[in-house]
Amino acid sequence: MRYVEAGRSGNLLNRVVGWLTGRGLSLWGSQLVAVRGRKSGEWRTNPVNPLTMDGERYLVAPRGHTQWVRNLRAAEGRGELRLGSRVEPFTAVEVPDEGKPQILRAYLERWKFEVGLFFEGLDHHSSDADLLRVASGYPVFRLTSARYEAAS
């Protein structure tokens, strides 16, 4: 399973972006994904860039099978998106690899400047075949607002 450590500069950047996002200042659309830890049960947060495409929202993990991804799987897709005091509960369904190329392309078109180094030379001009070749290393989740589910 592909997992890229954030490193010192990445950890520092995540802390700064997380701190600002937690106080309501979104940088380039950033939000915090909050998921209960699979061992501790405590809320864990990480800055993410939700993608809206064709009326659907997605979370992409550019560093691979990270802790927030593992926690989200263990929490059966239940989590929250946070921006300042605004909290939106969601449920997530993992997208199969064959459904990822268009989503990865849109994600790279929107955020390549920020996450491109994790995509090993790929960008939004990459072929479907190239994106499908690496898809298993980039978890993608389709989000549904839990508020809408409760109303249905």
Rank of each mutant, 00 (worst) to 15 (best):
R2T: 05
Y3R: 14
Y3S: 08
V4G: 04
E5K: 01
A6S: 09
A6H: 07
G7S: 06
R8N: 00
S9E: 13
N11I: 10
L12W: 10
N14C: 04
V17R: 06
G18S: 04
W19G: 00
L20T: 05
T21R: 02
G22M: 06
R23Q: 00
R23C: 00
R23S: 01
R23M: 00
G24P: 02
G24C: 05
G29M: 01
S30Y: 14
L32W: 04
L32E: 04
L32T: 05
V35Q: 06
V35G: 02
R38L: 04
K39W: 09
S40K: 08
S40M: 08
S40H: 05
S40W: 03
E42R: 12
W43C: 04
W43V: 14
R44C: 06
N46D: 04
N46K: 09
P47V: 03
P50E: 02
P50Y: 02
L51N: 00
L51H: 01
T52L: 07
T52R: 11
M53P: 03
G55D: 01
E56Y: 08
Y58F: 13
L59P: 01
P62E: 01
H65N: 06
H65I: 04
T66Y: 01
T66S: 00
Q67M: 12
W68A: 03
L72D: 03
E76C: 11
G77W: 08
G77Y: 12
R78T: 13
E80C: 07
L81E: 01
L81P: 01
R82N: 14
R82D: 13
R82A: 11
E88N: 11
E88F: 10
P89R: 14
T91A: 06
A92P: 11
V93Q: 15
D97G: 12
E98K: 10
E98I: 10
P101S: 15
P101D: 13
L104V: 08
A106G: 11
Y107C: 12
Y107S: 05
L108K: 11
E109Y: 09
E109K: 14
R110F: 06
R110H: 13
E114T: 13
G116P: 09
L117F: 15
L117C: 15
L117N: 15
F118L: 11
F119Q: 05
E120I: 10
G121I: 02
L122H: 08
L122R: 14
D123Y: 06
D123L: 10
D123T: 10
D123M: 13
H124L: 10
H124F: 13
S126L: 12
S126W: 09
D130R: 15
D130A: 15
L131T: 12
L132H: 08
R133L: 11
R133S: 15
A135G: 04
G137E: 00
G137R: 02
G137I: 00
Y138C: 00
Y138G: 03
P139L: 01
P139F: 02
R142S: 05
S145E: 03
A146G: 08
R147Q: 12
R147N: 11
Y148S: 14
A150R: 12
A150C: 03
A150M: 07
S152T: 12
S152I: 06
S152N: 07
